[in-house]
């Protein structure tokens, strides 16, 4: 690991100031991706700003019938939250399937979505539920607009995720085909029936989470496994790597969509 200066700001405002005044600074929350990245010398920040303990980024609250989760809330807290289990059980079970228990004890919602790993689980929930990402600049960014590419988001360089608001769906479920070693999604499908229509978000399959619009249209016409079967997923924009070829990932999108459909009921 390269050397860096470490800061533990006492407030979000102080964290934002530190981030804005150090162009090579990076944020640290749970560190379950960033510390391994530092250890491999894949990053060389001048300053590391630890926001994992900021009270302003904590808490899970009920809001407008849905849930609002602070950016520094850990996966294990979401998985174990009675409120999340009652309002959006699909979100709690997604959190329960991330990594391993120790990763879930430290890793955070804000860290996961700000990093936007192509195979991370949370981006599928943010897009699949039509969630809203709130930031230190007072912006409310729609889930559909937040994830802009591989490891890229709509966040400005000095902007910090503060919370995510997830509206309550009529029904929803997440199904993933995990890599057996890392538990990252080879393909993960978050499927939801919401007030604004059917949403199907796919993670792991492509360089960035995306909505499978053909599946959404088919399921809007008929909420059934036969609808999913009738759709062809184009593999040309999907990932091929040592874990799975693009055509296999295209196949898995439909299989995971059907599993999610069965789980959602």
């Amino acid at each position: 690991m390269y050397a860096f200066n470490y800061h533990r700001p006492a407030s979000l405002a102080e964290a934002a100031r530190l981030l804005a005044s150090n162009p090579e600074a990076k944020l640290l929350a749970g560190g379950q991706t960033y510390i391994p990245t530092l250890k491999q010398r894949l990053a060389r920040p001048s300053d590391v700003i630890d926001i994992g303990g900021l009270a302003e980024l904590k808490g899970i609250t009920e809001e407008a019938g849905g849930v609002t989760i602070g950016a520094a809330v850990r996966h294990a807290e979401v998985a174990g939250s009675a409120l999340v289990r009652r309002l959006i059980p699909a979100l709690a079970s997604l959190a329960e399937g991330i990594g391993d228990p120790q990763v879930r004890n430290r890793g955070t919602l804000g860290g996961s979505i700000a990093n936007n790993d192509p195979a991370a689980d949370y981006p599928a929930a943010v897009v699949g539920l039509g969630a809203t990402v709130r930031t230190s600049k007072g912006r409310a960014i729609a889930g559909d607009a937040f994830f802009t590419g591989m490891f890229e988001t709509a966040l400005e360089p000095d902007e910090i995720v503060t919370a995510v608001h997830f509206p309550k769906p009529e029904k929803a479920a997440y199904a993933k085909f995990p890599n057996p070693a890392s538990r990252y999604a080879i393909v993960g499908v978050f499927l939801a029936k919401t007030a604004s229509g059917i949403r199907v978000a796919v993670t792991g399959a492509a360089p960035c989470v995306f909505r499978a619009t053909a599946l959404e249209q088919a399921l809007a016409a008929s909420w059934s496994a036969a609808s999913i079967d009738s759709v062809t997923i184009d593999p040309s924009n999907l990932n091929s790597d040592i874990h799975a070829q693009a055509d296999y990932r295209a196949h898995l999108v439909k299989v995971m969509a059907k599993r999610a459909l069965a789980a959602a009921g």
Binding site: V48, D50, G52, P101, R106
Partner: peptide
């Protein structure tokens, strides 16, 4: 997971945490 310890009563991988944290 060979490095798991408890931090404030919760298990964590001590190789994936800074001492300053």
């Amino acid at each position: 997971g060979c490095c798991v310890v408890h931090v404030d009563g919760v298990s964590a991988k001590s190789c994936t945490m800074l001492a300053v944290q």
